[in-house]
């Protein structure tokens, strides 16, 4: 009886969790996201959002660009979103002494802070970009904004 009670409760909880996840996935709408590569070299990749209303993320834009063979990238999904580990063959160091960081001029939008100068800044083309507060999968693409991936080396 003990096992029945516990398993029933646990299964109910798990089923509720799975149901909500499925419902969420099923309700996904088409993402409006398109970026173009403005500049790139071995350590810097500059993307400009041509289309974006916040329904798609930087990760979605990178996936599209990779499909169009404009760039290559690798990474993994962690607790705080997608972490980029390699861009165009340049990989993060294993000890994280050098890694790809995301900078953007999208500091605040719709009440949320997406980048802050307190986390770090990167100057490119005369413009200062702030370090992103989220991983690539949680950073929305808003038309007209710029997203910079830079290979930072930490001393």
């Amino acid at each position: 009886m003990l096992l029945v009670i516990l398993i029933s409760f646990a299964l109910t909880a798990f089923a509720a969790f799975a149901f909500f996840l499925c419902a969420f996935a099923a309700c996904g709408r088409e993402k409006t996201v398109q970026c173009s590569v403005s500049a790139q070299d071995g350590e810097t990749l500059v993307l400009v959002a041509d289309r974006g209303d916040g329904s798609g993320s930087l990760y979605d834009a990178l996936v599209r660009l990779q499909a169009e063979k404009a760039l290559t990238f690798e990474g993994y999904t962690g607790d705080y979103g997608f972490t980029i580990t390699a861009v165009n063959g340049v990989e993060n160091k294993e000890d994280w002494s050098a890694c790809w960081m995301i900078y953007t001029d999208l500091r605040e939008y719709d009440g949320a802070v997406y980048a802050s100068d307190e986390y770090g800044t990167f100057v490119y083309g005369g413009q200062t970009y702030a370090s992103a507060s989220y991983g690539a999968s949680a950073l929305p693409v808003i038309a007209g904004h710029t997203y910079v991936l830079h290979y930072d080396v930490f001393s």
């Binding site: 409760f9 909880a13 509720a16 969790f17 996840l21 969420f24 009440g111 802070v113």
Partner: peptide, 26 residues
């Protein structure tokens, strides 16, 4: 509350909050 978090995460967070509320009540 309208949490000032990424707009891409708000729906997922609210779903998890409902699950947590359900689990707490049960």
């Amino acid at each position: 509350c309208d949490l000032p978090i990424s707009m891409l995460l708000r729906t997922g967070i609210k779903i998890l909050a409902w699950v947590l509320l359900f689990l707490s009540a049960m």
